[in-house]
Simulated scan of single mutants.
Amino acid sequence: METFTKRQSIVPPSFQAWHDSFHFTPATRVGDIIWVSGQVGLTAEMKAGEDMQAQARIAFESLKAILDSAGASLADVVELTTFHTDLRGEMEAFQAVKDEYFPHPYPSWTAVGVTQLGLPELCVEIRAVAVAGSGEG
Results as ranks from 00 to 15, higher is better:
68 D>T: 15
135 G>V: 07
65 A>M: 09
85 T>P: 04
61 E>N: 14
136 E>F: 07
134 S>E: 04
11 V>G: 11
20 D>P: 10
15 F>Y: 10
55 Q>R: 00
96 A>L: 05
18 W>S: 14
107 P>Y: 06
62 S>W: 15
51 D>P: 11
94 F>P: 00
134 S>I: 12
113 G>C: 06
100 E>C: 10
76 D>Y: 04
44 A>K: 07
116 Q>F: 00
89 G>M: 06
30 V>W: 04
12 P>N: 09
108 S>C: 08
29 R>L: 12
133 G>S: 14
81 T>V: 10
8 Q>W: 03
42 L>A: 09
68 D>E: 14
9 S>F: 15
69 S>L: 07
3 T>P: 06
30 V>Y: 06
128 A>M: 11
57 R>C: 05
24 F>N: 06
61 E>Y: 09
58 I>F: 07
69 S>M: 12
13 P>L: 11
13 P>T: 13
62 S>V: 06
83 F>L: 10
95 Q>I: 02
103 P>L: 14
84 H>N: 00
35 W>F: 11
82 T>D: 11
35 W>H: 12
37 S>T: 12
129 V>I: 14
102 F>A: 09
88 R>W: 01
78 V>D: 10
52 M>K: 05
29 R>D: 10
33 I>D: 11
132 A>M: 13
1 M>S: 15
109 W>E: 15
129 V>T: 14
114 V>Q: 00
96 A>N: 00
116 Q>L: 04
40 V>T: 11
131 V>Q: 06
125 E>Y: 03
134 S>D: 01
47 K>S: 03
126 I>D: 02
29 R>S: 12
5 T>A: 06
90 E>P: 01
91 M>I: 06
60 F>C: 04
82 T>Y: 10
73 S>A: 13
11 V>A: 05
135 G>R: 05
61 E>P: 00
60 F>S: 09
126 I>S: 11
117 L>D: 05
53 Q>Y: 07
69 S>V: 00
35 W>K: 12
118 G>V: 03
76 D>N: 13
51 D>R: 01
50 E>H: 03
135 G>M: 13
96 A>G: 09
46 M>F: 14
13 P>W: 04
51 D>Y: 04
111 A>Q: 12
134 S>G: 08
32 D>F: 09
98 K>G: 06
82 T>A: 03
93 A>D: 07
73 S>W: 08
30 V>G: 03
79 E>V: 02
100 E>V: 13
32 D>P: 01
28 T>G: 03
128 A>S: 10
107 P>C: 07
1 M>Y: 13
120 P>K: 06
69 S>T: 06
116 Q>D: 01
4 F>R: 03
3 T>H: 13
124 V>S: 00
36 V>A: 14
4 F>Q: 01
118 G>N: 00
97 V>K: 00
98 K>D: 02
16 Q>A: 14
112 V>C: 08
40 V>C: 13
16 Q>G: 11
121 E>I: 08
136 E>N: 03
112 V>G: 02
109 W>M: 15
20 D>L: 10
106 Y>P: 11
129 V>D: 12
90 E>G: 00
60 F>A: 02
55 Q>G: 02
104 H>Q: 09
110 T>R: 15
